[in-house]
Computed example of a mutant assay.
Amino acid sequence: MVPAPRDPITTPITKLITTPFTASSTTDDVLRGIDLSGVRAIVTGASSGLGLETARALTAAGAETVLAVRNVEAGEAAAERMAASTGRARPRVLPLDLADRASVARFVETWGGRPLHLLINNAGLVTGGLERTPEGWELQFATNHLGHFALASGLREALAGGAAERDGARIVAVSSTAHMRAGVDFDDLHFDRRPYDPQLAYAQSKTANSLFAVAATHRWASDGIVANTVNPGGVATGLQRNFTPRQKASLDAAEAAGVFTYKTAEQGAATTLVAAVAPEFARTGGHYLDDGQEAYTVPNDADLAEHPHGVKEWALDPELADRLWDVSADLVAA
């Protein structure tokens, strides 16, 4: 990993952080000349899409990569392809169902406290209608946020060990432009009373991803751990397989309006790797990255079509982040 500068870990600063990378940069561009030998990385949802490309690129750069996947067979096939294409050691595959608290606990137990340097919370779920976990939690919120929250919390000591070993550990939370559609509704997290809208449910979960990074950095900075959020942009992946006709129409309209243009997986995962390895984010957290740069903040009532590369205030609010952390901790511990 790129050596971290020795200045103190910080929370977000006033001046936006810039890097040499852009929307057209690829994962290979970000990792060119970087040797990740000795770095242990976990990538959730690594058997397809952005997670697959993120894990491939980390493996190619020499990282000891673990694919945390729900479909182990698909994960094993992905690991074989990565080893063959990169000439590196075959990634390890471990089962992980983020919507199942027992599965998350087993993953943490299997990891066993080994020092961890990178945790890439990439996995995501989109539903076409209301689905719930056995606890009664709305499935998108449970998978996209609560599962990753429980995973990171369970791996905190491992991350702290990694930070001590290599002067810093990083968490990357993969969010989405969709976060601009909705904040977190603390009065009805699981759509028990309001009419269910899968787009709003997804948006809420993506805002939660960003708030997690804000709170994690605040709470864990003393351990040498920083967390940042990334927006990969529009990438055609398996995530869209459950889209309803309304969701697909909304996406098509956004593309037609210029809100986003589709990227390749290599371009979409590039921003994840900027947050994971770029020296600019080695010791500062709670930021939201878009197209390889820290995004500018826009008011909560801002029009998405006018600010496709911004981040809404509700996704970076430290008070909301702390509130969500406490609520999440109570839920996963119950």
Rank of each mutant, 00 (worst) to 15 (best):
E165K: 12
G154P: 02
R156C: 07
A178I: 08
I171F: 05
A164M: 12
G162F: 05
A158L: 05
L155H: 13
G162W: 02
A160C: 10
R156W: 14
A164D: 11
I171C: 03
H179F: 04
G183Q: 01
A160L: 11
E157D: 15
D188M: 10
V184P: 05
S175H: 07
G154K: 02
D188V: 13
V172W: 09
G154Q: 00
D187A: 08
M180R: 12
A160T: 13
G154H: 08
S175R: 04
A178P: 11
D187W: 05
R181Q: 09
A169E: 07
A169K: 00
S175L: 06
G183S: 02
G162H: 06
R166E: 10
R181N: 08
A169C: 03
G161R: 05
D167N: 14
R170A: 03
A178F: 12
L159C: 00
A178N: 13
D188C: 14
G168Y: 07
T177Q: 13
L189S: 01
S175G: 10
D185Q: 01
T177E: 14
V174Y: 13
L155F: 08
L159E: 01
E165M: 10
A163N: 04
R170M: 09
D167E: 11
S176Q: 13
G154N: 06
G168P: 07
S153G: 14
D187V: 03
S153A: 12
A163I: 07
D185P: 01
G168C: 04
A164F: 06
G161A: 09
G162K: 05
D167M: 06
D188F: 14
A178H: 10
S176A: 06
